[in-house]
């Protein structure tokens, strides 16, 4: 496949991805008010559950911030990740009908799933200022430092989705493990708990390794420090996570493209 035909295909696939996610979103937000409510419901529900169970029982160190604000800041990126994980990983298997009818680069389906999750995240973020005001907290200019973090977070979601969606075509039964995997990953990521409290007790190299293995931990902590504490993200862990994510993304894309020609054969 020459470079020009690839560019052409990518252009076509952009329109297709747009149509697919547009459709998905339009159905959801058709009734603007109710649509927004759905996007708020999940993160607010999480905050409520976390506050009732984890805050009370686990006594999580929040360094003087109210727990709901502390948790919501990390739930925003985690909600995006778990949604794009769920949609992206099954996007090829879920679109077998289309797969057998139209020729397009198959990553279109993955990307449109992630685009949908991204819009949902933006909507769910709208509720954050309300929670902040309700608890009498402040807004910080460091919020704008999230721009590079957004890129890392999308790259991580694309990488894992590309890898899983291609693998899932050949080992479909693994699909049933995905919800469990998402739950486990959530507890392995500082969503309900904060990293800072543990950091005081554990040595540096272990944290470096953790940042390499779990970029979403870096992302969640970056949201927390910029939105809740008014600090800059930890650029060291950010650099480590970005490096490992770039490597994994390259591998995942290669893996996906290698398996892609066979998708229709097993559809």
């Amino acid at each position: 496949m020459s470079l020009t035909t690839f560019a052409q295909q990518a252009w076509r696939s952009r329109l297709l991805a747009f149509t697919l996610s547009e459709r998905e979103l339009r159905v959801r937000y058709k009734q603007a008010l109710l649509g927004m409510a759905w996007a708020f419901a999940a993160p607010l529900g999480y905050v409520l559950v976390f506050t009732v169970f984890f805050d009370r029982t686990a006594n999580i160190e929040t360094f003087g911030r109210p727990y709901p604000v502390f948790a919501y800041a990390a739930i925003i990126p985690w909600g995006f990740f778990s949604q794009s994980f769920g949609r992206g990983a099954t996007s090829i298997v879920d679109n077998l009908v289309l797969l057998n009818k139209v020729a397009c680069p198959r990553e279109t389906f993955v990307l449109s799933g992630i685009a949908t999750a991204f819009v949902d995240m933006l909507v769910s973020a709208v509720a954050f200022p309300i929670v902040v005001l309700a608890f009498g907290e402040h807004f910080y200019a460091t919020t704008f430092l999230l721009a590079p973090v957004l890129i890392l977070q999308v790259a991580a979601a694309v990488a894992i989705s590309l890898f899983l969606s291609a693998a899932l075509m050949y080992v479909r039964d693994v699909r049933h493990l995905l919800p469990l995997l998402t739950q486990l990953l959530m507890f392995a990521t500082p969503v309900v708990w904060g990293q800072a409290a543990i950091r005081q007790r554990v040595s540096g190299p272990i944290f470096d390794l953790y940042a390499l293995l779990n970029p979403m931990a870096t992302v969640c902590e970056a949201y927390r420090s910029t939105l809740v504490y008014g600090n800059a993200p930890d650029w060291r862990t950010f650099g480590l996570s970005s490096t490992s994510t770039a490597i994994f993304l390259t591998f995942a894309y290669w893996f996906f493209k290698r398996l892609e020609p066979g998708f229709a054969d097993v559809a």
Partner: peptide, 8 residues
């Protein structure tokens, strides 16, 4: 429209 976009 989607079919059209697939056709480029």
């Amino acid at each position: 429209f989607m079919f059209g976009s697939l056709l480029g």
